[in-house]
Amino acid sequence: MDIQLKKGVLNLCVLSIVSKTPSYGYDIYQNINKNFKISESTIYPILRKMVTENHLDTYLEESPEGPPRKYFEITQLGKKHLKYLLEEWHVFNDHVNYIIGGHNE
């Protein structure tokens, strides 16, 4: 899959993963990577940016099996942003499908 295409939707993917359940950086990466290959090193700056923009919040969770993990959870602002991105995505998707479909006919 094309790298530029992936990048455009990374924000949307990260936000929707975290909105379902709080998770830690590596977990988020693996979750996306299962579906389409991305580079781990692009995820981390995105996570950080989302925290500074207040779309995500972090907390440390201790674990009996090892060191504490830094969990990300979605904020109210993040939820709003996710909603906005989803709408944008659907509109975009529709348009692209329409164009592609039209092309096929």
Binding site: Y24, G25, Y26, E40, E65, G66, P67, R69, K70
Partner: peptide
């Protein structure tokens, strides 16, 4: 750093 710690212990 977390990535290393997780990989090692988990």
């Amino acid at each position: 750093e977390e990535r290393f710690a997780l990989g090692i212990s988990y």
